[in-house]
Design a protein around this nucleic acid. Structure first.
Lengths: 110, 110
DNA sequence: TGCTTAATGAAGCGTCAACTTACATTACGG
DNA sequence: CCGTAATGTAAGTTGACGCTTCATTAAGCA
């Protein structure tokens, strides 16, 4: 999940994701949208996205076609949903903290 | 919005956010949850989170109490919702690309 | 086979950010 | 006042990463 978050933080990678969200595109096609950087740079971004599971690749001859994997975005969405609401982690941490405090006299609490 | 994304990508900051999501805590209290790093490191994280608008701070004597600002998380949520579905950016880019291609002979297309 | 096209791999560079140590600030309490 | 507690700031180090240039792989085709 961390890989997904790191992947989508880079603005260029978010742009790439948008590009192939609804249709496959070749590496060169994608690179053509970003004249401000070189092709290898795009290639590296594609690798990061693919490693994070956000992109699927299939070869067709000498071309490589990339497309977004909506399931992974759904994963991220679910994770964030849980992040907003989930108190479990918080409560676990609180439990041990409170326990430690209760066993100390008042003047040792901070 | 980029600031929010960058802020929550750092795992330690996500943990901090969870800690103060439902109750205020002092800087020292928060730092006590992360024995693996020093207090100044936490202080710096708090600043990043506060600058991103994700944390509110109020002073109480010499202490500083931090708490999450749920509105900003809601902003992020809305942004991501839009990100999944929004085709506007994509369509804009497609339009200019397709136009450029159609005006070129076949052998100049990539 | 050898040339061309599509794309990645590898090495190196510059920048950024998370961290540490040391110092400064601010407020309370005797 | 002065000391101490709570916290932030400054400066410096280090590792990660996005980028470029140059080299390499792989497929299609004469």
């Amino acid at each position: 999940m961390d890989a997904i978050l790191r992947a989508i933080v880079e603005p260029r990678r978010r742009d790439i994701l948008q590009l192939v969200q609804h249709q496959e595109k070749t590496s060169g096609d994608i690179a053509a949208h970003f004249p401000e950087v070189t092709r290898p740079a795009i290639s590296q971004h594609l690798k990061v996205l693919e490693d994070a599971g956000l992109l699927a690749m299939r070869k067709e001859g000498t071309k490589r076609l990339y497309q977004a994997v909506p399931e992974r975005l759904a994963d991220l969405k679910r994770y964030l949903e849980a992040f907003w609401d989930d108190r479990l982690q918080l409560l676990a941490r609180e439990a041990e903290t409170e326990e430690r405090r209760s066993s100390l006299p008042d003047d040792q609490r901070n």
